[in-house]
């Protein structure tokens, strides 16, 4: 049962990732692209967790955790750049 569910979710999340990339390329503006990058990293968390479940390993949880932290900080930095130009002041 879980195997089938996994397969379906992986396909769906992969599709979501592809759609994120579409938005990222299409734009039209920088904020759209930053948002696309942010949701892309969230989908990446999902992908990496699904991967961990499928091979029955808990090692990937930390990677997912890190993507969560780092993705957030990257988004913050990009947004700050758009608003203020200087990231660290």
């Amino acid at each position: 049962m879980i195997a089938i569910a996994l397969k379906i979710t992986i396909v769906m999340v992969s599709l979501a990732v592809a759609l994120n990339v579409y938005r990222l390329v299409k734009g039209p503006d920088a904020p759209d692209r930053i948002l696309a990058l942010d949701s892309l990293s969230i989908n990446a968390i999902a992908l990496i967790l699904l991967l961990g479940i499928s091979i029955n390993s808990r090692l990937y949880i930390e990677s997912a955790l890190l993507i969560a932290v780092m993705g957030f900080i990257g988004t913050v930095a990009l947004a700050k750049y758009l608003k203020r130009g200087s990231v660290i002041e």
Binding site: L24, L40, A44, L47, L51
Partner: peptide
């Protein structure tokens, strides 16, 4: 931004 995606994908590949 495109480079960030590349970086993320490389990290996923490693994983």
């Amino acid at each position: 931004i495109l480079l960030s995606v590349v970086g993320l994908m490389v990290a996923l590949t490693f994983a």
